[in-house]
Design a protein around this nucleic acid. Sequence first.
DNA 1: TCTTTTAACTTGTGATCACATTTTTCGCAA
DNA 2: TTGCGAAAAATGTGATCACAAGTTAAAAGA
Lengths: 240, 240
Amino acid sequence: MSSRVKSTPENSAAPVKGGGADKAMHEQVYSTLREALIAGQLAPGRALSVRRLAAEFEVSTMPAREAIRRLAAVGALDFTDTRRVTVSQMTEAKLREIKEARVALEPVLSGFALERVEALPREKGRLVKSLEKIDKNLDLAIRRGDVMAYSQLNSEFHFALYRAANANVLLNLVESLWLQFGPFMRVVIGRLGTSCLEDDQHKEIIEAVVEGDSAKLQAAVKADIVHGMQTIELDDNAVD
Amino acid sequence: MSSRVKSTPENSAAPVKGGGADKAMHEQVYSTLREALIAGQLAPGRALSVRRLAAEFEVSTMPAREAIRRLAAVGALDFTDTRRVTVSQMTEAKLREIKEARVALEPVLSGFALERVEALPREKGRLVKSLEKIDKNLDLAIRRGDVMAYSQLNSEFHFALYRAANANVLLNLVESLWLQFGPFMRVVIGRLGTSCLEDDQHKEIIEAVVEGDSAKLQAAVKADIVHGMQTIELDDNAVD
DNA sequence: TCTTTTAACTTGTGATCACATTTTTCGCAA
DNA sequence: TTGCGAAAAATGTGATCACAAGTTAAAAGA
């Protein structure tokens, strides 16, 4: 939440406006915010405001508005009854929905990913190496008890796999789910400590990819989700 | 696409701005556009523009922008490489993804709906009556060959069921899928005629709800989706 | 008649201002 | 110290303008 976007020098002094930059500014605000949410860097219930966001990114209010609107459209942000914008709170019912949706979608997406890399050996090699590297750092983060690094790396691990599917419709659905439970998960893990995360299914996931075994992969992904979500559910103080 | 939003009389003459209305104007623009997309009233590839939309709804460009941005966020609209906004085109790969996602999500959502109405008999009665009425009109539309009415009523039928689940996370995911294939489906049905739609699973769906049989309901919903999507896939000229 | 160039128009994006509410802050009294 | 109420600051939303880039239409040349 403290990163800076290239503040086009024209903005401050002269009122030279227009497209200018190589990428739309609202896009940059959006991406940064999205990463922060998925990695759990923004606490549930935290209030955002158009003007504060704009100031932080050193842009006008317009890009901030559009980024907020976009995140709200996928359920990551909530507009309260009084028109206030906050990071979505979790409820028990919502958590159940997210779990069911993840279980329904992510194994399918994993299957697509495997199907695709099986046809592209070089890409498969890159994917496996990437997953192994992330998982190694993940283990270190867990042992270190580094919740922040864990959240970041865990999402990186899953999305490295999912992105390999080259299936944007499914990817967007899954991403919207992660945007919704990311902030909450981070809070729970922070409370429980990383020790509860030691027995994930990442090794099995990598194995299944290497072996090209789709059934095994989907089962491992599902198990990983179920285990992770159960860990959260068990913390009864989690939902307020 | 020709409906009007209450044009607050203050807007035209005096520059009295601000919240004013009871509901945000961008929300109204969004809802209208969403309904039009799901019902297939906007053809794939059709170009939208902020200013034209604003003119049509008799609002300024701001509410139109936000509505467009929001629909783009869920994949209903595309921003082309040259910053043009169009109704999303369909591709073969995308259609496959949508089918898989629908098969994965909509039976689950149906199960949630049944589970909920089983606990609320009055609501269950209302739901069944509502479904029966819509299905009756649906049959008439099919016999009449009225593609427009069919698209409208078919979405009403499914969402009447889905809304009963009171599960907004899942509902939003499913809605985003319908927003993406609605325009395309309408084109295909328009080409094939409504005769190919005679053997849907709506009767079985209603039956299963009445009987409170979740397995039967989910199977019927899945069959309805698979059948509907296969109808589309078979039309090889459909995807351009 | 067909191609090419140029001018007019349209469009998305960013900036800025206005207004009605909501939220916070601060001083005063009990 | 604790409530309470009014002033002050902040916020979402809508309107409007500016600018650069894209699209379309027209005009000019072959």
